[in-house]
Design a binder for these strands. Sequence first.
DNA 1: GTCTGTTTGAAACATACGTTTGAAGCGCAG
DNA 2: CTGCGCTTCAAACGTATGTTTCAAACAGAC
Lengths: 225, 225
Amino acid sequence: MAQSDTVDRILDAAEELFADRGFSETSLRMITSKAKVNLAAVNYHFGSKNALIHAVFARFLTPFSATLESAFDELEERCEGKPPTLNQTLWALTESAVRMPQRNEQGISIFMRLLGLAYTQSQGHLRKFLEQEYSEPFGRFMRLLKEATPQLSSVDRYWRIQFMLGATAFTMSSSDALRDILKNKLGVETTVQEIAARLVPFLAAGMQAEDAMLIPSPGSKVSVA
Amino acid sequence: MAQSDTVDRILDAAEELFADRGFSETSLRMITSKAKVNLAAVNYHFGSKNALIHAVFARFLTPFSATLESAFDELEERCEGKPPTLNQTLWALTESAVRMPQRNEQGISIFMRLLGLAYTQSQGHLRKFLEQEYSEPFGRFMRLLKEATPQLSSVDRYWRIQFMLGATAFTMSSSDALRDILKNKLGVETTVQEIAARLVPFLAAGMQAEDAMLIPSPGSKVSVA
DNA sequence: GTCTGTTTGAAACATACGTTTGAAGCGCAG
DNA sequence: CTGCGCTTCAAACGTATGTTTCAAACAGAC
């Protein structure tokens, strides 16, 4: 258990610290001291800090994309040729995330926060890595979204997908902080599953909104029921 | 124009670089070389890097919060005691942002991205600064949202506000890149105002969604019409 | 036991960072 | 012209970072 132990301890520590503080704000010395391994172990086993970041993502993203593929397979089979609905597609994604085998109880939380950071922090190498490693499930999700919203123009759909992405990535990337605020303010505890359960209806409703499409001109008083 | 020139050049450069790369990823040397001023000028005029970050926010947030206050005043006066609707409240915010006097044409874009970063990056000092400097307009907006959505529980409303924030900050922060993609893919040009015009209906619909609130349990097959 | 390839360890490396220093430059009142 | 704030400048400071080095420790095969 010599190598695997060190490698896993580094990955565990890095995952948690990255999720807590972001990538640039986490040093290798923090990681190695939390993992109780030698500083040089990171560069020995992974090659560089960036490669470690990639490894952290790959460790949960690879099994997740497999889970997601089979969830989409099952969904499409169940629909027998008809395109899955928007809600079904969104739930397939959410359930795949929630059902993933967890290393610990806050696995999803960390997972989501890392995904949010991947979009939010400007780490060019990370985005490139994710795009070329996981383009397939991502593209498939986009295809399903398109088939589920035939009433939308390409342009509307494009922007609304961005809105969904933003709401999700942003919320998840700060979900711990938000949960804390909520706990202090209203005394309510919240799980990631509950956040997801609130997020999906929000996204679906926004995605299918009647398009008011009123461009406000200066001086006009806009009021939409 | 000796001092003000240097100060403004630093603020301009810092604003743009922060929006592009985040706070930790932007060094004072990048800022000062872009601004064509001496490295020590930052610490001379602002005191520290953190204080510079605060100044960047204060420069646009102070006039914006004034604009917003008067927009809310006008709105509430127009409603004569009845609480403004959700759409009215959202449009008041959007119009205030769009109508702000801009330093350059992508002013709003940068503005939004910085706000997103303020939430996303774990910069404790920044959050503290914003909370104690701009609690008033923020609290007022929250109050209006609450009055416009009396059907929502506090917890639901809290999360949906986060979703709105995320969709907005994320989209606006990368709206330049997104506009480019859209132009190349579909050959369509888009203005920030049009994005806002698409965003507001999306947000309003999500905010007022029927709450399906189904927490998926393992093994269950969830499908919502 | 000895050899071999792999993994760990302590230390140093080069570089980049935010900040500080002290001298030089500048504009302007006296 | 002189003297006095304010501002700029080049240089250095101390610290922290990612990475490299090379010897020591280790495990398994023969």
